[in-house]
Simulated assay, not measured.
Amino acid sequence: MVRRRVPLVTLVWIAGGLVAGGLWWWAVLRLALVPEQSGLVEGAVAAGGWGLSLLPVHVTASAGAGGRAVRGATGARVTTASRPRRWGGGSDPS
């Protein structure tokens, strides 16, 4: 049996994500179930978590995704938009 060691940093990130997710769910459920007793903290946590869900944080710069990965002024990788595809230029006569 092969045992793989998980780095401590990975475990800390996973635990932090679970704690943050638990706090967000607590805030959302408290706002939904007892809105008269919830306050500013619950609203801020719920709105902040919802706002983070709108960010495309899973997207990374990649040259194979149709765009072109280049180095920006700060040295960071920046992805340019891909050109729209042209499929024959006309429509079918129907």
Rank of each mutant, 00 (worst) to 15 (best):
L8W: 03
G75D: 04
P56D: 14
A69S: 10
V57C: 08
L8Y: 02
A20C: 12
G17R: 10
R71L: 11
M1A: 14
A73H: 09
W50T: 15
L33R: 09
S82W: 01
S53T: 01
G49N: 00
V41L: 14
L55Y: 15
G22A: 15
R68Y: 01
R4Y: 00
H58I: 10
G89N: 03
V70E: 14
W26G: 08
S91Y: 08
A47F: 07
S82T: 04
R85W: 05
S94C: 09
R5W: 06
G75N: 11
R4Q: 01
G48M: 09
L8Q: 09
E42R: 13
I14R: 12
R4S: 00
L23N: 04
V59G: 00
A73Q: 13
A32L: 15
H58E: 09
P56E: 06
L52R: 15
V41R: 12
V57D: 01
A46N: 04
A47I: 07
A81M: 07
T79L: 14
A73R: 14
L18Q: 07
R4A: 00
P56V: 13
A47V: 15
I14S: 04
G89D: 11
G49V: 00
G21M: 13
H58V: 14
G72C: 10
A76Q: 14
T60V: 12
V41G: 04
M1W: 09
V6R: 12
G72M: 07
R3W: 02
R30N: 05
V12P: 00
L33P: 00
A69Q: 03
G51F: 01
S62L: 07
T79D: 10
L18H: 05
L18F: 13
L8S: 05
S38P: 11
T80A: 08
G17I: 06
G67T: 06
V12L: 10
L23F: 11
R71C: 02
V34Q: 12
E36N: 06
R5L: 11
S38F: 03
P93F: 06
S82D: 01
T10M: 01
A15Y: 01
V57R: 11
V78S: 05
G17E: 06
S94M: 08
L54I: 09
A63W: 05
D92K: 10
L40Q: 12
L40P: 04
V28M: 02
A15D: 01
P7Y: 04
A81R: 14
H58A: 15
L11N: 06
M1H: 13
